[in-house]
Amino acid sequence: MAVSSLSLSFASKPFAHNSVERGWISPAECAAVSVTKCSKKIAQFDEETQCAVSGNCKRRALIFGMGAGALTMNSLRPSPLLAEEIPEKYNIFVDKVDGYSYYYPSDWRDFDFLGHDSAFKDKSLQLQNVRLSFLPTNKTDIRELGPMDEVIFHLTNDVYSAPNQIADILDMQEKTIDGRNYWTFEYVLTSPNFSRAAFATIAIGNGRYYTLIVGANQRRWRKYRNMLKVVADSFKVMDI
């Protein structure tokens, strides 16, 4: 497996939000505004997690890990994913129908996160979670969306954050795995009464724009950051 990476770290200044009235759509769908102008507006779903409703259907795929059973919607056939070494205290979620996989902490449980294809959360800290969504695109690579810093600036300020929040970008990285490019970035959303930190990883493949977000309350970020970074870095798109 060929892997290369590029990293850029910085602390962003507070950004002013667009004063034009706007609606909310899924993070992945709004991310595609760099590709086509968003016209679909949907009401804001959850202020604390800053997620929004989209048309994706929740799907259960294949879960591997210590003590985990398996539920699959398609036939099980040999795959390199099944042979890879899963880090201790993590499971792997594999969706061979929709073409992606990622690790998640083995003590997390799956749940229905509206507008997302799959999601897992901590049993006791529900704001500590990972979720994945996607939407169709005619692009073949994330570099076609534009320069990495401009795209990530747009995502954190105009898509992931609410009008009363300030977005700070802490780090952004590009890596290439088997010829496919991935962007992973770390950011904090701060509102008057709440702050949340997260990693997001985006990639394009199979005619789909994939977005994985894993985060936690900012007060717990220092303790759990490295654990959640493993999740963000593990996301892979498979050819289907």
Rank of each mutant, 00 (worst) to 15 (best):
V3R: 03
V3I: 10
S4Y: 00
S5I: 03
S7L: 11
S7A: 13
F15H: 12
A16C: 09
A16Q: 14
H17T: 07
N18K: 13
V20T: 14
E21A: 12
R22G: 04
W24Q: 10
W24A: 14
P27E: 01
E29K: 14
C30P: 04
A32T: 09
V33K: 15
K37N: 08
K37L: 06
C38S: 14
K41P: 06
A43D: 13
E47P: 10
E47V: 11
E48Y: 12
G55R: 10
R59E: 03
L62Q: 11
L62A: 04
L62K: 10
A70K: 05
L76Q: 14
R77M: 14
P78T: 05
P80Q: 10
P80Y: 07
P80A: 12
L82D: 15
E84D: 13
E84W: 06
P87W: 05
K89V: 06
K89A: 12
Y90T: 06
N91F: 01
I92V: 14
F93K: 04
D95V: 02
V97H: 05
V97K: 09
Y100V: 01
S101D: 00
Y103E: 01
S106F: 01
W108S: 01
D117S: 14
D117L: 14
S118T: 04
A119L: 02
D122F: 04
L127R: 07
L127I: 07
R131D: 03
R143H: 07
G146F: 00
F153H: 13
F153S: 07
L155A: 06
D158V: 04
Y160M: 11
A162Q: 06
I166P: 03
I166W: 08
I169R: 05
I169H: 03
M172R: 13
Q173L: 07
Q173H: 03
R180F: 00
W183S: 00
Y187G: 04
V188A: 12
T190S: 14
T190Y: 04
S191W: 04
N193A: 12
S195I: 00
S195L: 02
A198W: 01
I204M: 02
G205V: 03
T211S: 13
L212Y: 03
V214T: 15
N217K: 09
R225C: 03
N226G: 07
M227C: 08
L228G: 08
V230R: 11
V231D: 01
A232K: 05
S234Q: 02
S234W: 00
S234D: 02
K236C: 02
M238L: 15
I240A: 12
I240S: 11
